[in-house]
């Protein structure tokens, strides 16, 4: 099964899995928005579209600006189909700014909108795991467990499978449950679960970036995000209690 996925979606085709996840997440998010009627459907759809457009264009343009010397020597490279000429973090920043501006202009409430976008984020996490599996990246550390998989002649934890399973669990949790009473709770719950999953799973990775000798950087960052999410959830709960 793993070999089939790795063959069908071998790089650069592994990005198809991310696009499929994006399409499914968008469909699911719009379906939930329609059902719950908390925010304007058309405005939400436009917000998502402009956000994606800003991600794609911003990721490429900001990457080019960040590597200006390389692009000055060959300006036509800006139109290259190479997905490597792209910065997902800068693209994400461009998408966030665009969505904030569009949301404010169209009076979309911040936390309910973020909650509505959460199924899209959750689906993307599943797609990311699948893309890792197809690409062979984010691989596990060596193991003698019977479910280990062969990676370049060594038996390793199927860390990408763990990643997909936990991302599916979170997607199921987010996508199937009814509306939560507090605005922001959906997104913060997703953030808490996703960071907790990464904190746990990073221990089985064989490609961790280490800091302070032997600590895994991704675990430390995940712990900080988890702490923020739990703190914010607690604040939400307190605000609700005071209001009641």
């Amino acid at each position: 099964m793993i070999e089939v996925i790795q063959s069908w979606f071998a790089p650069p085709r592994h990005t198809i899995l991310l696009v499929l996840a994006l399409w499914f997440g968008w469909w699911l998010a719009e379906k939930i928005v329609k059902r719950e009627q908390k925010i304007n459907e058309a405005a939400f759809s436009n917000l998502t579209f402009y956000g994606l457009l800003a991600f794609v264009l911003g990721g490429r343009i900001l990457y080019a600006l960040d590597n200006l010397a390389a692009f000055m020597s060959s300006p036509a490279s800006i139109f290259s189909p190479n997905p490597q000429l792209f910065d997902p973090f800068l693209g994400g920043a461009a998408a966030v700014v665009t969505m904030l501006v569009y949301g404010q202009r169209n009076k979309l409430p911040f936390w309910p909108t973020l909650d509505a976008l959460t199924p899209l984020f959750a689906a993307l996490m599943v797609g990311l795991g699948a893309a890792h599996l197809a690409e062979g990246s984010a691989f596990g550390k060596e193991t003698s467990l019977p479910w280990g998989i062969d990676v370049n002649g060594l038996t390793r934890h199927p860390s990408q499978i763990y990643e997909i399973v936990l991302a599916f669990f979170v997607l199921n949790l987010i996508g199937t449950r009814g509306p939560l009473p507090r605005a922001g709770a959906q997104f913060l719950t997703f953030l808490a679960w996703t960071s907790a999953a990464r904190l746990f799973l990073e221990a089985f990775r064989g490609d961790s970036v280490l800091v302070f000798g032997s600590l895994r950087l991704a675990q430390i960052l995940s712990w900080v995000v988890l702490a923020f999410a739990l703190f914010a959830l607690n604040r939400l709960q307190s605000t609700q209690s005071v209001a009641n």
Partner: peptide, 27 residues
């Protein structure tokens, strides 16, 4: 959060389980 901290220290890569570029592979 306390369990998370414990897990970070328990699962620290003391034996070099991460590749650290020591194993030959085309990745």
């Amino acid at each position: 959060l306390a369990l998370g901290l414990v897990w970070i220290f328990v699962s620290a890569d003391r034996d070099g389980a991460s590749t650290n570029g020591l194993i030959p592979a085309p990745r």
